[in-house]
């Protein structure tokens, strides 16, 4: 492992995922997605339901089902293309070098196995620890993610823990082997609002302490604002805009990004100020080959939008897939 800081830890190149079914046309869930994650960096993947952000993360982890799914492109991690790695090699990497925290802590833990076993199993698998040593490591992990009385909790079952506790336990499992890359797929969506902030804070702290890189997958721009260095916005399976967080928030160029930012309700806005939703629904999409998928909902649409697929262009450190972007001077409507 080299520590060249300029070399990314993870390089996703032209990633595509198609779901295939006999007698039905393929569904292209992810298409041409490319991004880099440097060691210790926090990258946000933002998009609404169905934008392909979760499928992207599952493809990186090699967790997509093998049947009826076709994955193309490259996912380079430590000089290896994860997509062509033998399954057993991939098993060695998962949980040790890269780990994942899932959306729903209620269903992501095995209900019939004690928490302790679910934590120690990953330690025993990837580190030369077993028995008491593994138990001790597990208790320390639970302590580190802020679960009080860890030795008692280790003997308990998931249904005896609150939602926040369960997500903490899942985070402990993910960080058990000090992975260099952590993927968090909407880790706070299923939690109470009051717990959400705690979990985000915890993730931020742990990731910072361990030096791990983080891919934060979310539909919530608020989460991204407080956490990520770089943000990629996805729409209908493709990245439409990617930039440094400050840059993106200050000057969104893609009308979809602009719409997302404008639709966040502001507490400091005057009473009675109407919300600014993006018109239409994510199902009003155009197939990418025939034009920009966002065109049917776009207020900035021009005729050229539906002439063909807009290319992803690189303009001054920002990637953008739009033929008629918002002007750089335009103020974000508040």
């Amino acid at each position: 492992m080299t520590n060249d800081p300029t070399r990314p830890l993870l390089a996703v190149r032209d990633l595509g995922v198609s779901f295939t079914r006999k007698g039905a046309p393929d569904v292209r869930a992810v298409d041409g997605v490319s991004f880099d994650v440097s060691p210790g960096q926090t990258v946000g993947l933002v998009g609404e339901s169905g934008s392909g952000k979760s499928v992207t993360s599952l493809a990186v982890m090699g967790l997509l089902p093998r049947r009826n799914v076709r994955v193309d492109g490259r996912v380079i991690f430590d000089d290896d293309d994860l997509l062509t790695l033998p399954r057993e090699r991939m098993r060695d990497i998962r949980g040790r070098d890269m780990a994942m925290v899932f959306q729903d802590p209620m269903t992501s833990l095995n209900p019939v196995v004690p928490i302790g076993v679910q934590v120690t199993e990953v330690i025993e698998r990837h580190q030369q620890l077993s028995g008491d040593a593994a138990d001790k490591a597990a208790a320390e992990l639970l302590d580190r993610v802020g679960i009080p009385d860890p030795t008692r909790r280790l003997r308990e079952y998931p249904h005896q823990l609150s939602g926040g506790m369960r997500q903490r336990a899942l985070i402990a499992m993910a960080l058990a082997c000090r992975p260099r890359l952590l993927i968090a797929d909407e880790p706070t969506t299923a939690l109470d609002v009051t717990i959400q902030a705690q979990i985000l804070e915890l993730l931020k702290e742990l990731v910072h302490d361990s030096g791990a890189a983080l891919i934060m997958i979310t539909h919530d721009l608020g989460v991204v604002a407080g956490l990520c260095d770089t943000v990629h916005v996805m729409y209908s399976g493709r990245v439409v805009e990617g930039a440094q967080r400050r840059e993106l928030f200050a000057r969104p160029r893609h009308p979809y990004t602009g719409g997302l930012l404008a639709s966040v309700p502001r507490l400091d806005a005057a009473r009675g100020t109407p919300l600014h939703p993006i018109p239409g629904s994510p199902t009003d999409v155009l197939a990418w080959p025939s034009g920009c998928a966002f065109a049917p909902r776009c207020h900035h649409r021009v005729d050229a939008c539906t002439d063909g697929p807009p290319p992803l262009e690189n303009i001054g450190g920002r990637s953008l897939r739009c033929v008629n972007p918002l002007p750089t001077t335009e103020e974000v409507p508040a």
């Binding site: 949980g95 833990l109 095995n110």
Partner: peptide, 19 residues
């Protein structure tokens, strides 16, 4: 979901199957 969690941990296939 918990089977996917187990896969994400890189556990051996027989552990996932049994446990």
């Amino acid at each position: 979901d918990y089977v996917r969690t187990a896969e994400a941990k890189g556990l051996w296939e027989r552990t996932i199957t049994r446990r």
